[in-house]
């Protein structure tokens, strides 16, 4: 599948109708999501024929992108059942298979090394400090091959130091820096739209 085609399909997905600020629910834009999964597959071979988990999947954008790129089994994990219902409808619309589990990612219980790759757009931790790092810590335990994640560029040094020292990562690499447009979703947003710089990371667990 070509990048443009993937981006087009993801652009048609339903997003949060009533986003919940306490969960930092922001849709993952189709521009970012398509590039993230496209490089995971085409530069690293971490998606096709793999078992992929999407942590904090929301409406399923990243997991569905993985399914479209040939992942054999995709599991979306999210705390919010309303988001999972939207994600499930999105999967049906795209006619791809995706599994869902309602769970707080921090309490996710699993066994074995079945999950190859974790993809995620974690809460950036602006409402609840450290939320993105909690996700990352679990992802690096669950994945046997790679973790793809988005984090604010302003936290780059901290992320790198922490994953290598405390989170069982053998490598941490910024694949590219992206602009994340945060649309005006919530009442407290004063500006119509803001751009924040985010890093697309690839982590390899030990």
């Amino acid at each position: 599948m070509k990048l443009k085609q993937l981006e087009g399909l993801l652009g048609s997905l339903e997003q949060f109708s009533h986003p919940k600020i306490e969960l930092e629910q922001y849709p993952t834009g189709h521009h970012i999501a398509s590039r993230m999964l496209f490089s995971a597959e085409n530069s690293f071979g971490d998606i096709g024929d793999k078992v992929v988990a999407d942590f904090g999947c929301g409406c399923g954008t990243l997991g569905l992108a993985a399914a479209l790129l040939g992942a054999e089994h995709v599991i979306g994990v999210d705390i919010d059942v309303e988001s999972l219902a939207v994600a499930s409808a999105n999967a049906e619309d795209l006619e791809v298979d995706m599994e869902f589990v309602q769970c707080d990612v921090r309490n996710f219980g699993w066994r074995g090394q079945i999950i190859d790759t974790v993809v995620m757009n974690p809460p950036f931790g602006t409402r609840r400090k450290g939320a993105d790092m909690d996700f990352l810590s679990v992802a690096l335990k669950v994945a046997s091959q790679a973790v793809y994640s988005l984090h604010k560029t302003s936290t780059r040094d901290y992320v790198k130091r922490t994953v290598l020292r405390d989170y069982n990562a053998s490598s941490a690499e910024v694949i590219c820096e992206l602009r994340y447009d945060v649309p005006k979703l919530y009442k407290f947003h004063k500006k119509k739209e803001v751009d924040i710089a985010v890093d697309l990371w690839r982590f390899v667990p030990k």
């Binding site: 089994h73 599991i75 599994e99 589990v101 219980g109 699993w110 074995g112 999950i115």
Partner: peptide
């Protein structure tokens, strides 16, 4: 839920030592 998902899910309740299967 497929049985592949079942084969990796485990109960993670505090104090439980073997939440699988």
């Amino acid at each position: 839920m497929k049985l592949l998902t079942h084969n990796m899910l485990s109960s993670n309740i505090k104090g439980v030592t073997n939440g699988f299967p």
